[in-house]
């Protein structure tokens, strides 16, 4: 009898395959959208196939979230160590203050500084994505009970060993939750990146809004919604499959 965990992964796998089949099948979209919008002359966005658009979108999010994770988690760890503790208040202050900033505004402000295209979008996604990752890393590490740490040191672990074998495993779920929030926000904000020329699933929607073509809008919106839901479920599954739980209150 498969466990609940295996079943979850199985369902997600099936959903993922179904998603790829759906977006790869241009003929199906063509027929479906023609049926829904008989008045339009073109129903498929001519710039690129749906598969390419989804791939562009995933790349955009993967690059920015990748940099976020590579820099954000170490930053969160550093300010929780004695060597970086002086900076803890200002970092927590910036992360909570910065989360009040709307992601769209951050993206918009990247344009005057960095111009149009891929770079400002990646920079804005990276910067905004840092906030939840850093914040959850700090929160996760702080929620580790101090007696567990004492026990680790008592066993003769070095600081580094305690970090990798006690603190990080115990806070992994909280950190991953931060990564998930960051990735989901990035998928949404990357859509708007299409306005400044970053490509991705936002581009058929923008083209549809400009040309008043409802078919283009659906062609971008439906896969984008599915992509975000799948990414969310994927990361939730990873969170749930971690053995330790140590949620901060």
């Amino acid at each position: 009898m498969p466990s609940k965990k295996t079943r979850r992964w199985f369902i997600l796998g099936v959903a993922l395959v179904a998603f790829v089949v759906l977006i790869a099948n241009t003929g199906l979209w063509e027929t479906g959208l023609r049926f829904l919008f008989p008045g339009e002359t073109t129903v498929i966005h001519p710039r690129a196939s749906l598969l390419v658009l989804v791939w562009e979108h995933i790349q955009l999010v993967a690059i920015s979230s990748g940099i976020t994770i590579i820099l954000g988690i170490p930053l969160g760890i550093w300010v929780s160590r004695p060597s970086g503790r002086d900076f803890l208040p200002i970092v927590t202050d910036i992360t909570s203050f910065g989360q009040t900033f709307p992601p769209v505004a951050v993206l918009a402000l990247a344009v005057p500084v960095l111009g149009f295209g891929l770079m400002p979008t990646i920079a804005a996604l990276f910067l905004y994505g840092l906030l939840p990752v850093v914040r959850n890393t700090i929160a996760g590490l702080h929620a580790v009970p101090s007696d567990l740490l004492d026990a680790a040191y008592g066993m003769g672990m070095s600081r580094l060993q305690a970090l990798f074998r006690v603190e990080l495993p115990l806070s992994a779920r909280v950190i991953l939750a931060g990564v998930r929030v960051s990735v989901i926000i990035n998928i949404g904000t990357a859509m708007i990146g299409a306005v400044i020329g970053a490509g991705g699933l936002g581009s058929p929607i923008i083209a549809g809004l400009v040309r008043d073509n409802l078919a283009f809008i659906i062609e971008g919106a439906l896969p984008a919604a599915l992509l975000a839901i799948l990414a969310d479920q994927f990361l939730t599954n990873i969170e749930n499959s971690l053995a330790y739980t140590n949620e901060p209150v």
């Binding site: 989901i184 998928i187 949404g188 859509m191 708007i192 699933l201 936002g202 929607i205 549809g208 809004l209 409802l214 809008i217 659906i218 971008g220 919106a221 439906l222 984008a224 919604a225 975000a228 839901i229 990414a231 969310d232």
Partner: peptide, 12 residues
């Protein structure tokens, strides 16, 4: 989790 632009689009 649905991106805002997508939800706006789906409602139109």
């Amino acid at each position: 989790t649905i991106p805002s632009l997508a939800l706006f689009g789906l409602l139109i």
